[in-house]
């Protein structure tokens, strides 16, 4: 359905509680959005659930994997049936996902990502791409294509009690409404490296300003070698910085173990973590034994509550992105559920 066609009475009744929050205009924007989700693991399951419920136009799932025993940890669209182990995952779960909301068009594609890369024009059909659980080379390759095609990209992954969201949304305009202060905001004001107020519309009656804000993003490889973090944190924050940030980025250097019982070599992880701290200009002291143990043990594992927090946050940000009301996440969010922290860094 097109953006211009009004919501039907049935749609309004179904989406009542969310329309009351974000309005008809956002609901229409969602209804016209076409999204690709790469890999439907633990966090992918949560994202697809949330976006199907939200009422997007269409979602394509791209995943060539087969069902593994450990997938039963957090991938709740899988039927409780051991005989499906070893079978391609998407055909098994697609009907269960469709049940959530039959207004959303759902396609599945079991082509390996590497084959898709051979003809990247495939990506053109989507307004937005969400990639989950990619390794570094896949992520960089995908980002190269999304950059070339100007398609916003979200990347996310889970490591037990930890997780991340990395965004390259190219650029994004939003028009938040703010109460006007004593001094009116000026157009063409740079708030930070990536955020600019490009326009200010003042409404005297309500004493509000409608701002137009431009958020600019950097390509993902740049995030991996950024020197920006020390500039964004004060001394105290730098001192108590959680090891989850350097260790999550360290894990991009490791492959997911084939056997789910296996752990990541702690000393290799330590060496990599320290190296990354030095590279990012942050204290190596954050790499504690406790965190090394947790990360070597929990790397690439899936846990439903953490998948729910991360998948909820990502889906919410996608809705935010599409609604154009506020700025989306720019450009790294770390979830540390041991410290109950979700910092966002602009790298």
């Amino acid at each position: 359905m097109s953006k211009d066609e009004a919501l039907t009475a049935d749609e309004i009744a179904l989406y009542d509680r969310q329309i009351r929050l974000w309005g008809m205009a956002t609901q229409l924007r969602l209804r016209s959005a076409k999204v690709l989700i790469v890999n439907v693991g633990g966090v992918g399951t949560e994202i697809v659930k949330n976006l199907v419920l939200g009422g997007l136009n269409s979602i394509e799932l791209l995943d060539s994997s087969v069902v593994k025993e450990e997938d039963f940890a957090a991938q709740f669209f899988l039927p409780n049936d051991d005989s499906i182990i070893g079978q391609p995952k998407l055909p098994i779960i697609v009907e269960k996902i469709k049940e959530l909301n039959n207004r959303v068009k759902l396609n599945i594609n079991t082509t390996p990502l590497e084959s898709i890369f051979e003809d990247p024009s495939y990506f053109k059909q989507f307004d937005l791409i969400i990639a989950t659980e990619l390794n570094r080379s896949q992520l960089f390759a995908l980002n190269q294509h999304t950059r070339a095609l100007s398609i916003p990209l979200y990347a996310t992954g889970l490591h037990g009690l930890f997780g991340y969201i990395i965004t390259d949304l190219i650029e994004h305009y939003s028009t938040p409404q703010k109460e006007a202060g004593n001094q009116l905001r000026e157009p063409n004001t740079k708030i930070n490296r990536s955020k600019t107020i490009t326009k200010v519309d003042f409404d005297k009656g309500s004493n509000t300003e409608t701002l137009t804000i431009l958020d600019e993003f950097v390509p993902i490889p740049q995030i991996f070698k950024s020197k920006e973090l020390p500039n964004q944190l004060n001394k105290r924050q730098l001192k108590r910085l959680s090891a989850s940030f350097p260790l999550i980025f360290s894990l991009f250097e490791f492959e997911k173990p084939l056997n789910p019982e296996d752990v990541i070599d702690k000393e290799l992880l330590r060496a990599k973590g320290i190296q990354l701290c030095e590279q990012y200009g942050i204290p190596t002291a954050s790499i504690t034994e406790e965190y090394l143990d947790m990360f070597s043990n929990q790397a690439f594992t899936e846990y439903s509550p953490v998948a729910a927090v991360l998948g909820g946050t990502l889906a919410q940000d996608v809705i935010q992105f599409l609604s154009k009301k506020e700025s989306p996440i720019n450009n790294v969010l770390i979830l540390d559920s041991v410290k109950s922290e979700m910092p966002i860094y602009l790298l």
């Binding site: 009351r20 929050l21 949560e46 953490v306």
Partner: peptide, 12 residues
């Protein structure tokens, strides 16, 4: 107003 994402995060 109530949405799936907030409920997912808080329940998590």
């Amino acid at each position: 107003p109530a949405i799936a994402t907030t409920n997912a995060i808080i329940s998590g």
